[in-house]
Deep mutational scan, measured.
Amino acid sequence: MGMPNRKYADGEVVMGRWPGSVLYYEVQVTSYDDASHLYTVKYKDGTELALKESDIRLQS
């Protein structure tokens, strides 16, 4: 078993793309699913969504 190939840690605050949009919002990573390679993130309004790594970026 190798290390999970994840870029962002639980609790890390990053920018997540809103689905169907080009806009990124501040989100907190809450979990990562090794099987689906999706991150569960929480937006400031409390919305929780699963995002692909390509829809997440570090805060500038």
Results as ranks from 00 to 15, higher is better:
residue 7 K to N: 05
residue 40 T to N: 08
residue 37 H to Y: 10
residue 41 V to P: 00
residue 20 G to W: 06
residue 56 I to Y: 00
residue 58 L to T: 14
residue 11 G to S: 04
residue 21 S to P: 01
residue 10 D to S: 06
residue 18 W to I: 09
residue 15 M to F: 13
residue 12 E to F: 04
residue 46 G to N: 06
residue 1 M to D: 15
residue 3 M to R: 15
residue 10 D to W: 03
residue 53 E to T: 04
residue 20 G to Y: 07
residue 40 T to A: 06
residue 10 D to E: 06
residue 34 D to N: 09
residue 24 Y to F: 12
residue 50 A to R: 15
residue 36 S to R: 11
residue 24 Y to D: 02
residue 25 Y to D: 05
residue 26 E to I: 13
residue 17 R to C: 03
residue 10 D to V: 12
residue 30 T to L: 15
residue 9 A to W: 08
residue 44 K to W: 13
residue 47 T to H: 06
residue 10 D to R: 04
residue 55 D to M: 06
residue 8 Y to H: 04
residue 45 D to W: 10
residue 36 S to L: 11
residue 3 M to C: 15
residue 24 Y to M: 06
residue 5 N to K: 07
residue 2 G to N: 07
residue 60 S to E: 12
residue 54 S to K: 09
residue 33 D to W: 02
residue 6 R to H: 05
residue 53 E to H: 05
residue 35 A to D: 11
residue 33 D to P: 00
residue 33 D to I: 03
residue 51 L to N: 00
residue 14 V to G: 02
residue 9 A to I: 07
residue 7 K to F: 05
residue 19 P to A: 06
residue 52 K to M: 11
residue 3 M to K: 15
residue 58 L to H: 14
residue 4 P to M: 10
residue 2 G to K: 03
residue 11 G to K: 04
residue 28 Q to A: 07
residue 57 R to T: 09
residue 24 Y to S: 02
residue 41 V to C: 10
residue 14 V to T: 02
residue 10 D to P: 08
residue 60 S to H: 12
residue 38 L to V: 09
residue 53 E to L: 04
residue 36 S to F: 07
residue 10 D to L: 09
residue 19 P to Y: 06
residue 1 M to T: 15
residue 15 M to A: 05
residue 15 M to Y: 13
residue 49 L to S: 06
residue 9 A to S: 10
residue 19 P to K: 06
residue 37 H to M: 15
residue 20 G to L: 06
residue 2 G to D: 14
residue 7 K to S: 06
residue 56 I to W: 01
residue 6 R to P: 04
residue 15 M to T: 04
residue 45 D to E: 03
residue 36 S to G: 06
residue 27 V to F: 13
residue 44 K to Q: 10
residue 34 D to F: 09
residue 1 M to Y: 02
residue 26 E to N: 05
residue 23 L to M: 14
residue 31 S to R: 09
residue 36 S to M: 10
residue 46 G to K: 04
residue 47 T to V: 08
residue 14 V to C: 04
residue 27 V to E: 00
residue 9 A to P: 07
residue 53 E to I: 04
residue 3 M to T: 15
residue 39 Y to V: 02
residue 45 D to H: 04
residue 52 K to R: 13
residue 41 V to W: 01
residue 18 W to S: 06
residue 34 D to Q: 10
residue 59 Q to R: 14
residue 46 G to R: 04
residue 18 W to C: 10
residue 43 Y to M: 15
residue 42 K to M: 12
residue 57 R to A: 09
residue 1 M to V: 15
residue 12 E to A: 13
residue 59 Q to C: 15
residue 21 S to Q: 09
residue 46 G to C: 06
residue 39 Y to Q: 00
residue 56 I to K: 00
residue 26 E to V: 13
residue 42 K to E: 06
residue 35 A to V: 14
residue 14 V to H: 02
residue 43 Y to W: 12
residue 15 M to L: 13
residue 3 M to Q: 15
residue 59 Q to T: 13
residue 27 V to G: 10
residue 39 Y to P: 00
residue 6 R to C: 04
residue 5 N to H: 06
residue 49 L to E: 03
residue 37 H to N: 13
residue 51 L to K: 00
residue 60 S to L: 13
residue 24 Y to Q: 02
residue 18 W to N: 04
residue 13 V to A: 06
residue 27 V to D: 00
residue 34 D to G: 09
residue 18 W to T: 06
residue 18 W to V: 08
residue 14 V to E: 00
residue 14 V to D: 01
residue 47 T to F: 07
residue 19 P to L: 05
residue 29 V to K: 00
residue 18 W to Y: 08
residue 23 L to Q: 11
residue 29 V to W: 01
residue 56 I to C: 02
residue 26 E to P: 11
residue 48 E to I: 15
residue 13 V to D: 04
residue 31 S to F: 08
residue 11 G to Y: 05
residue 42 K to C: 08
residue 30 T to D: 05
residue 54 S to L: 07
residue 36 S to T: 14
residue 48 E to R: 08
residue 52 K to T: 12
residue 13 V to N: 07
residue 5 N to Y: 11
residue 44 K to G: 08
residue 1 M to A: 15
residue 5 N to P: 15
residue 55 D to P: 00
residue 34 D to H: 10
residue 60 S to G: 13
residue 22 V to S: 14
residue 58 L to F: 10
residue 29 V to A: 00
residue 47 T to L: 07
residue 30 T to C: 12
residue 14 V to F: 02
residue 45 D to C: 09
residue 37 H to G: 15
residue 29 V to I: 14
residue 26 E to D: 05
residue 9 A to L: 11
residue 25 Y to W: 08
residue 12 E to I: 07
residue 60 S to F: 13
residue 20 G to M: 07
residue 32 Y to F: 09
residue 3 M to V: 15
residue 30 T to W: 08
residue 25 Y to F: 13
residue 53 E to M: 04
residue 2 G to W: 07
residue 32 Y to L: 01
residue 48 E to K: 10
residue 57 R to L: 10
residue 55 D to F: 05
residue 38 L to Q: 07
residue 16 G to A: 15
residue 43 Y to L: 14
residue 27 V to Q: 00
residue 36 S to H: 08
residue 45 D to A: 03
residue 50 A to T: 14
residue 34 D to R: 05
residue 40 T to G: 05
residue 41 V to Y: 01
residue 24 Y to R: 02
residue 15 M to E: 09
residue 19 P to D: 04
residue 38 L to A: 05
residue 12 E to R: 05
residue 11 G to R: 03
residue 35 A to P: 04
residue 13 V to H: 09
residue 39 Y to K: 00
residue 16 G to F: 09
residue 60 S to K: 10
residue 9 A to Q: 14
residue 31 S to E: 05
residue 40 T to D: 02
residue 32 Y to D: 00
residue 51 L to S: 01
residue 4 P to Q: 12
residue 40 T to L: 13
residue 19 P to N: 06
residue 54 S to C: 10
residue 8 Y to A: 02
residue 3 M to E: 14
residue 56 I to H: 01
residue 13 V to C: 10
residue 10 D to M: 07
residue 6 R to M: 02
residue 5 N to G: 14
residue 32 Y to H: 02
residue 31 S to A: 12
residue 27 V to Y: 06
residue 49 L to V: 10
residue 26 E to Q: 12
residue 50 A to D: 09
residue 36 S to I: 05
residue 27 V to W: 03
residue 1 M to E: 15
residue 48 E to G: 03
residue 48 E to A: 08
residue 17 R to V: 04
residue 45 D to Y: 03
residue 14 V to P: 01
residue 53 E to V: 05
residue 30 T to M: 15
residue 23 L to T: 12
residue 47 T to W: 07
residue 40 T to M: 13
residue 33 D to C: 06
residue 4 P to A: 12
residue 25 Y to T: 08
residue 37 H to A: 14
residue 59 Q to V: 14
residue 43 Y to R: 10
residue 49 L to N: 04
residue 52 K to I: 08
residue 9 A to Y: 10
residue 55 D to A: 06
residue 39 Y to F: 02
residue 42 K to I: 12
residue 58 L to V: 13
residue 30 T to V: 15
residue 34 D to T: 09
residue 59 Q to H: 14
residue 50 A to Y: 15
residue 47 T to I: 09
residue 59 Q to L: 15
residue 24 Y to L: 04
residue 35 A to T: 12
residue 30 T to F: 09
residue 47 T to S: 08
residue 11 G to I: 02
residue 16 G to N: 01
residue 1 M to P: 15
residue 22 V to P: 11
residue 34 D to P: 11
residue 36 S to K: 11
residue 40 T to E: 03
